[in-house]
Simulated scan of single mutants.
Amino acid sequence: MTEPESRLNATVPVELAGRRFDQALAELFPDYSRSRLTAWIKDGAALLDGESVAPRRIVHGGEAVALSVRMEREIGAEPEAIALDIVHEDADVIVVNKPPGLVVHPGAGNPAGTLQNALLHHDPKLAEIPRGGIVHRLDKDTSGLMVIARSMRAHTSLVEQLSARDVHRQYAAIVYGAMVAGGRVDAPLGRHPHDRLKQAVREDGREAVTHYRVRERFRTMTLVECRLETGRTHQIRVHMAHVRHPLVGDSQYGGLLKLPKGAGPELVAALRGFRRQALHAERLEFLHPASGETVAFEAALPPDMQALLAALRVDTREHAA
């Protein structure tokens, strides 16, 4: 479905003389990504002095630019009335607190009932934004904060910030083992050589860096704070398993449930009832696409992680007595 065109006009300023047309266009219309602007140039939707020219055409300053903006429906997902925990929203962004168990995108095995379906019901215009405004993701069973682009300006800005590592993401995780201190994991990640659904530390993988520190130590487990320097698939889960402190509840990277020796009935019940990786995106910080000011949002630990921490505290006190 194609929406009606809107026509934008501008004049190439003298200071852009000597630049390529696609570069000048990116300066004149920063709300749109360079790849989208280049595609519009090639399609004849961006004219220089009334003519269709190549993206590499050199500009001299003073030329008239006419851009026909044609926004198309980017995705095929349908709106669904699924409740959203909205932490913040304005004309450019929506920040949501995703619950565990909610898939972000429709896909094989999850054709509907996803965060994307819920967002399209909340704001149908998101269908005009690439990927429905979703610029990063959380695993199905990871809870916490995500930012969604509500405008092309926001989409371009957030994608650039993520690429430049200017979006700061902080997670809370409960891991096996009583960790002594925090640290830094610098281990490249790539697809697992034998299981395409998993990631693995590989020498030929993409750079991946995670910083972690101890927040609360228990008898057999630790609450850690993780900060992402890069944002690879399953990064925290793989990195913590790599340093031999896999996430509690993470059957994919941590193996079968491990019940601590001497654990009381309360802790045993909490661990057996915890059926996801104990990972929560608790803080999100980025430059607002409209104001350019730093904005930060926080989401408290969900009830299941709070209940597990309460049981761990009781267990630790009982064994210290």
Rank of each mutant, 00 (worst) to 15 (best):
P303N: 12
P106C: 14
L309A: 12
L284K: 00
R283Q: 11
T233P: 07
G144D: 12
R202S: 09
V224C: 06
R237F: 03
L47R: 03
E51I: 02
P193K: 14
R206Q: 12
L308V: 06
F274G: 14
V185I: 12
A64E: 13
R232V: 05
R206E: 13
Q161M: 00
N97H: 10
D31I: 00
P4N: 08
P30N: 10
D304P: 00
Q161P: 01
V65W: 05
V214A: 04
L247T: 05
H155Y: 12
R150G: 00
V180M: 09
G133L: 02
H242Q: 12
G18Q: 01
G292N: 13
R191N: 02
N9S: 11
Q235H: 09
R184N: 06
S251L: 15
R169P: 04
L259G: 15
R137W: 09
L271K: 03
L158F: 00
V59A: 00
D90Q: 10
H242M: 09
D166K: 03
Q199H: 15
P303M: 15
E203W: 07
N110S: 08
R202H: 07
G183D: 06
D31W: 02
R217Q: 14
A172W: 14
P260Y: 06
G133D: 04
E128R: 13
R217K: 14
A311R: 01
E229F: 07
D186H: 14
T2A: 12
I134V: 15
T233I: 10
L47Y: 00
T142S: 08
R184F: 13
T38N: 08
T316K: 10
R70D: 08
A200F: 04
H211M: 05
A187L: 11
